[in-house]
């Protein structure tokens, strides 16, 4: 707790990136030596449609400050419809948790193709900045300040 609040605190972002597009985008950002915040930890998923709202919630409960779900642009899904389904799920998860009192900034989604290294850098930077602005995730702490 104490360590979380001091000025050294850096947000922890968990990214679920789809294998076909967004992971490729992140890879390209790395191989083209683009600089992006090291706050993101990446889990490669076969499709953004694989991301269960449970994963998102569990990550936040475990103490991640934010979660990013990223997949192919609508119409580009390797499995045709995975990202459309993901979109419905994410929309509902985000809106519902916002209603329960969670900051909406903590759940983020984006469409990043394998060639959009620039967009990946941009999204991760923006999301990290947003998380820095709202502060550490203390939603599940026993006593909140």
């Amino acid at each position: 707790m104490g360590a979380k609040l001091n000025s050294e605190w850096e947000p922890q972002l968990l990214g679920f990136l789809c294998k076909w597009c967004s992971y490729g985008g992140a890879d390209l950002a790395g191989t083209s030596r683009k600089k992006y915040p090291p706050n993101i930890r990446i889990i490669k998923v076969p499709c953004s449609g694989r991301v269960d709202p449970l994963f998102v919630f569990k990550a936040l409960q475990m103490g991640f400050d934010g979660v990013l779900v990223s997949g192919c642009h609508p119409g580009d899904c390797h499995y045709q419809t995975g990202n459309f389904r993901a979109r419905r799920r994410i929309a509902i998860t985000k809106k519902f948790l916002e209603y329960m009192g969670m900051e909406p900034e903590r759940i983020q989604a984006s469409w990043i193709s394998a060639s959009e290294a620039g967009k990946f850098v941009e999204v991760v930077t923006e999301v990290t900045e947003g998380l820095k602005a709202i502060g550490p995730n203390q939603l599940f702490d026993e006593q909140r300040p």
Partner: peptide
């Protein structure tokens, strides 16, 4: 059912 279906354009304002 709701979650097995989708429209081409919906809820895009929630996604970057």
């Amino acid at each position: 059912p709701l979650m097995t279906h989708y429209e081409q354009e919906e809820a895009e304002d929630l996604i970057r």
